Simulated scan of single mutants.
Amino acid sequence: MLYGIAAATTALLLAAFLAALLRLLAQRLGILDRRRQRPLPLLGGVAVALVTCLVAAAGEWTRFAPLGSEMGRLLIAAGAVAVLGLVADVRRVKARFLVGGTAVAAACVVPYDDTGFLLGLPAVGWIVLVTVGFKALDHADALAGTVGVVTAFGVGVCAAAEVMDELAVLLSVLAAALTGFLMQNWHPARIGLGACGSLFVGFVLASSAVMTRAGHDPLSSVGVLCSLTALATADLVLVALSRRLAGRPLLRRGPDHVAHRLRRTGLTPQGVTVLLGVGAFATVLVGVLVHMGWAARSGVLWVGGSVLVAVFALLHIKPYGPRRQPSFPVGGDARPPAQVRSSQVSGQLRVRSG
């Protein structure tokens, strides 16, 4: 207990300090997200991933909180995913490489002894889905970090209920590191999580949730897992439906995520983050209560129905502006201006030659 409190406090302070230092380094090296309204340094995820791994490794080294083989494998796989995300932050990487690398890492952490091979494959797919979902949540200041803290506490409670103390300590350290990072990421953000941090956080949370539900009833596990990560999956569903209906490429970035649409209703950036944080807390709470047997399994159905209603409601908020059409003069020559000028120039040449 005392070690968990000391580890979480250390992670919080280290992450806040390291994020401030890496902000200056990212500015000097030009590792910036230039697709926002203002260039944003992108090494905040390095601080979260590095502090989480270092504090967890310190527990193993001092023997106060030995990791065990499963936790060690989880941290190694999550570190590999973080490195892959860092490469994507520094230079452009195709989405299929991110998804493929995450799938390989997920296949290494699924507890096949408890799930079996047939259920292990869907578990790998679900880990990849949630990991990509957390990367997609990193489209607004403090959103991915806030949802990550809430989810980490929820999954940590589930892990403690399963007497998985090492996993519970790891999740508390992750939550504390994210809290320290949020000191630099709250609107207006001074540093961003980036693909490195968002993939790392999503991978650790999704993998930990799978470990806590391994060996339970598969149908109820699906409901609990979806409740624990409802916001990330809802954002992915919303974006996919929106771009499909608009005929836009699925991988093209656009202002069509949950936070973007809520901003169009008049909410402030801070208000959007708080509202979505409260929503994530509600769904995570239902998942925790159902996992511990303190609520009926039908609770996850209410979560699923509420998420679907919210997605279809947000679809009615149009995120895309009208396409610009070329303006032609009313009456007279209906050809584009470039063709009109070209014909005028050719006519003048014929007159001079004549």
Rank of each mutant, 00 (worst) to 15 (best):
A65W: 06
L86G: 03
R63M: 13
D114F: 12
V109Y: 03
E70T: 15
A136N: 12
V132P: 01
R63S: 13
L67P: 02
G79L: 09
V83F: 02
K94A: 15
G133W: 02
A80Y: 01
R91P: 01
I127T: 03
G72D: 09
V81C: 01
A65N: 12
A80W: 04
W61V: 12
V90I: 13
R63D: 11
A105R: 00
P66R: 13
P122H: 15
V83H: 01
F153I: 15
C158M: 06
A142N: 11
D113R: 14
G68A: 08
V128K: 00
G148I: 06
H139C: 14
L86D: 02
G100N: 12
V149D: 03
F64R: 13
D89I: 00
V110E: 00
R96Q: 13
G79H: 07
G85R: 00
T102V: 12
L143P: 00
T151E: 03
L137V: 11
V130C: 10
A123Y: 01
V104S: 06
C108K: 14
L143R: 05
L119A: 13
A65S: 12
F64A: 13
L121D: 07
V109P: 01
A107M: 09
A136E: 10
G125M: 10
A88L: 04
C158N: 09
G145T: 15
C158R: 01
V109S: 01
T146F: 04
V90H: 06
F134T: 02
A142V: 07
C158A: 07
R63I: 15
V90T: 11
S69N: 14
L86E: 03
G85L: 03
G154I: 06
D138V: 14
M71R: 14
V155T: 11
A77P: 03
T102M: 06
P122R: 15
L121P: 06
T146A: 11
R96I: 13
L143Q: 01
C108I: 14
R91I: 07
A144C: 11
G116A: 10
A82R: 00
P111F: 08
D113E: 13
A77C: 13
A152M: 10
I76D: 07
W126T: 01
A107Y: 06
V99A: 10
D89K: 02
G145L: 07
A103C: 10
A123V: 13
L86M: 06
A80R: 04
T102S: 11
L98V: 12
L75H: 02
D114K: 15
L86V: 07
G116K: 00
R73H: 13
G101C: 08
L119H: 09
G120Y: 05
L86C: 04
L75V: 08
A65G: 10
G85A: 04
K135I: 15
C158H: 08
V124T: 11
A142W: 02
V93N: 00
A77W: 03
D113F: 09
A142D: 05
A144Q: 04
G72H: 08
I76N: 09
A123P: 00
